[in-house]
């Protein structure tokens, strides 16, 4: 349990720093950045008690917002995907009872984990850019930016998962 807390704290701080100091400055093709910090939401262990998870996700987003002067857009988007993580997972896997302790994203088949991460990323990005532009006139821009960034983020997240988690 204690080990788990240390692990999550380290993950939290590392993700914030990597995101704001490196990934926010990639600007591929002039405007694409991977928002890899949301792997926190994917990696955080499944529990019955969701309170601390929701609160940490909110804090993670807020930390990113502090660095990038963006109001509360990252906090709002990250909190939302943290809240819908479990319902989305049970929709995709078609079951409601999980082995909470031993669940890992690597135990899923590629197709299922891919659609899970893709959906989660897209929802996050859509909320993020929607709140950033904050006008219906730019709906096209919001959608295209969300889609392109989702692609970039999802690929990067998969690389992270392959490199940093053990296969079951």
């Amino acid at each position: 349990m204690n080990n788990q807390v240390v692990k999550n704290t380290v993950l939290f701080i590392t993700l914030v720093l990597i995101q704001v100091l490196i990934l926010n400055n990639i600007n591929l093709f002039g405007y694409l950045n991977p928002y890899v910090y949301i792997v926190f939401v994917i990696f955080y262990p499944l529990r019955k008690d969701k309170g601390s998870f929701l609160f940490l996700s909110f804090l993670l987003g807020l930390a990113i917002d502090f660095f990038s002067n963006s109001g509360g857009i990252n906090a709002a988007a990250t909190l939302l995907i943290a809240y819908i993580r479990l319902p989305l997972l049970s929709k995709i896997l078609n079951k409601t009872d999980f082995e909470y302790q031993s669940f890992s994203i690597r135990s899923l088949s590629f197709g299922k984990s891919f659609s899970f991460i893709l959906l989660l990323t897209f929802i996050h990005h859509f909320i993020l850019f929607g709140l950033e532009y904050f006008s219906l006139d730019s709906f096209g821009t919001i959608l295209s930016k969300s889609l392109l960034n989702t692609l970039f983020t999802t690929i990067t997240i998969f690389i992270v998962i392959v490199l940093f988690t053990k296969k079951k």
């Binding site: 807020l62 109001g71 509360g72 857009i73 709002a76 809240y83 709140l131």
Partner: peptide, 16 residues
């Protein structure tokens, strides 16, 4: 809890 935190985040967003 979700609603409360989301409200805080949206408050910061609208303020900005």
């Amino acid at each position: 809890l979700f609603l409360m935190l989301e409200f805080v985040a949206l408050f910061f967003t609208i303020q900005s």
